[in-house]
Design a protein around this nucleic acid. Structure first.
Length: 492
RNA sequence: GUCUCCUUCGUCUAGUGGUUAGGACACCGGGUUUUCAUCCCGGCAGCAGGGGUUCAACUCCCCUAGGAGAUGCCA
């Protein structure tokens, strides 16, 4: 049987890293098995539905670079892939359950449900529906209908016995039926199905063979199996994936930092870094390798190597992966990718000027291996554009020197800077070493004042490359302003 | 409260009865380097606890503890 798996997000918010991990594992499982990966939009909660959340689903996976074989945008033989367009189907199947006595109408108002829940929690009882309408008479039913009350349809969970379902990761999970959610709603009063009904029907109708979803779904596993049985269907295979947690061990949420893929994108992460890192949350290949591209993962992923325990999301490690992948990219890619960050920072104009373009082209090779996030770029190149507004005297003077000595060093540096452009970086380095020897100081002690003069900071990309990029004229001006700064200081 | 799942360095993990318990991130130290970064070398640090089973348990079983999830006309 051909493997068919699905990712079934609900468009109520932006794509969460945990959901995307589930999507990735489903996708990889499909690829490894030459199967089909399906996207199904579970938009049955019309109160929480958001148009931008739906767009975010498309944008997120577009950006990540993997796609479904069947789905709302690409079509397929088992649509529609929006649950909101399948409500007649759910109604029809819910009716079947009513007719076979495996489901019933419930007319309990929300207030009553809230009341019994309050009562239950107050008495430390398990909260849940009290099955009040499970045995109402046809007369009572008529009465409610005449009053115009819109009923919900509830599933008749067996009162006795137990239900067992098999999980490929966890093994058999057996639950006494009395511990299962007492008669959950299948069809809401607005005619839309709940998750429990819709997912079972759709997975069956769409010929889904394996359900890979997060472990938070384990408790509803037995219920779903019961529903499959009620229809006379065979449930698919289950595999509940370990959850993704925050540093404090709780379910990963905004409290912990970025959680949606679009935030990671905005913060300067690369899609391949995210994919690689995410693939290792609850899964591993062996004891040595952990750098994997999507294409590779599509060949080596396997359920057998899943971990049972939840994984804590480590932003630091993701950053490390990001640095790795930034270094792997071409200069052109990096240029393209840092541009939005430079523009947003107001460092360059939106259509670049020729001058700006030249500076960026020259800067990329200098900063690429220094980036961990694309968003690090602005602070690394800011001094290339515009002026340096202020220097810090203490930063100019090296530890081993005092003000006078530094001033002297800079004067000497200025002399050999004049024909800087005529030499290669290697040659210039020899010249500066020569100067250092002559002055009896360390190379670093003459380059640091120069670095601060040119860049305004002690930490920068390689100095010689920067000097050529900025141009001698500007560099000398900056050196001069540092000289006068030091001189003014001495006259006080 | 009840039910279910989980438990190897701080974090991600390898490990399927006999290993000096391996790797990675982070952290610390050192080297290379004009600073930073990269790169290289080294260090720190772990089998939750208690019982069994066994000649031998991180590995198998039980209990305890801890953590998490579920308990909706949300998914």
């Amino acid at each position: 049987m051909k493997v068919r798996v699905r990712y079934a997000p609900s468009p109520t918010g932006y794509q969460h890293i945990g959901g995307v991990r589930t999507a990735l594992f489903n996708y990889l499982f499909a690829r490894v098995n030459n199967g089909t990966f399906i996207l199904r939009i579970e938009d049955t909660d019309r109160t929480r539905y958001r148009e931008d959340a739906l767009e975010d689903i498309y944008e997120t996976f577009q950006w990540l670079g993997f796609h479904w074989d069947e789905g709302p945008d690409v079509g397929g033989d088992y649509g529609p892939y929006f649950q909101s367009r399948r409500i007649e189907i759910y109604r029809e199947y819910a009716d079947k359950l009513i007719n076979t006595g495996q489901a019933y109408y419930c007319y309990c108002p929300q207030e009553r449900l809230a009341r019994i829940r309050r009562m239950q929690t107050a008495n430390k009882m398990a909260p849940g529906y009290d099955r009040n309408c499970r045995n109402i008479t046809e007369g009572e039913r008529k009465e409610y209908e005449d009053k115009g009350i819109k009923p919900v349809i509830r599933f008749k969970v067996p009162l006795k016995g137990s239900t067992v379902f098999h999980d490929k990761l966890l093994g058999d999970i057996e639950t006494p039926n009395e511990d299962i959610n007492p008669d959950p709603v299948l069809l809401k009063s607005d005619g839309y199905p709940t998750y429990h009904l819709a997912n079972v029907i759709d997975d069956h109708l769409m010929l889904i063979t394996h359900i890979l979803r997060a472990q938070e779904w384990i408790p509803s596993g037995p219920l779903h199996v019961l529903i499959y049985r009620a229809f006379g269907w065979e449930p698919p295979e289950y595999c509940h994936l370990p959850m993704v947690m925050g540093k404090d061990g709780q379910k990963l949420s905004k409290r912990h930092g970025a959680t949606s893929v679009r935030e990671f994108k905005k913060n300067g992460y690369l899609p391949e870094a995210l994919i690689n890192y995410i693939s290792l949350l609850g899964w591993s290949y062996d004891d040595a390798r952990e750098i994997f591209g999507l294409d590779e993962l599509e060949k080596i992923f396997s359920l057998e190597r899943l971990n049972k325990a939840p994984a804590v999301f480590d932003y630091k490690k993701l950053e490390w992966f990001n640095g790795i992948y930034i270094r792997k990219r071409s200069k052109e890619d990096i240029k393209k990718m840092i541009m939005p960050f430079l523009i947003e920072d107001g460092i360059v104009r939106d259509p670049l000027t020729e001058e700006e373009e030249k500076l960026i082209d020259g800067a990329v090779p200098l900063i690429q291996e220094r980036l961990r996030l694309l968003s690090d770029a602005p602070k690394l190149v800011r001094f290339l554009f515009g002026e340096i507004d202020r220097y810090n005297i203490e930063e100019i003077i090296p530890k081993r020197l005092n003000r006078e000595k530094t001033l002297n060093v800079i004067h000497e540096v200025r002399k050999i800077l004049v024909d800087f452009g005529e030499y290669s970086d290697e040659e210039n380095e020899m010249r500066f070493r020569g100067l250092a020897d002559k002055l009896g100081v360390k190379l670093g002690d003459i380059l640091m004042p120069l670095r601060v003069a040119v860049t305004g900071t002690r930490v920068s990309p390689p100095l010689f490359g920067l000097i050529k990029l900025i141009g001698l004229k500007k560099v000398l001006k900056r050196v001069d302003s540092v000289i006068s700064l030091l001189e003014n200081q001495s006259s006080e």
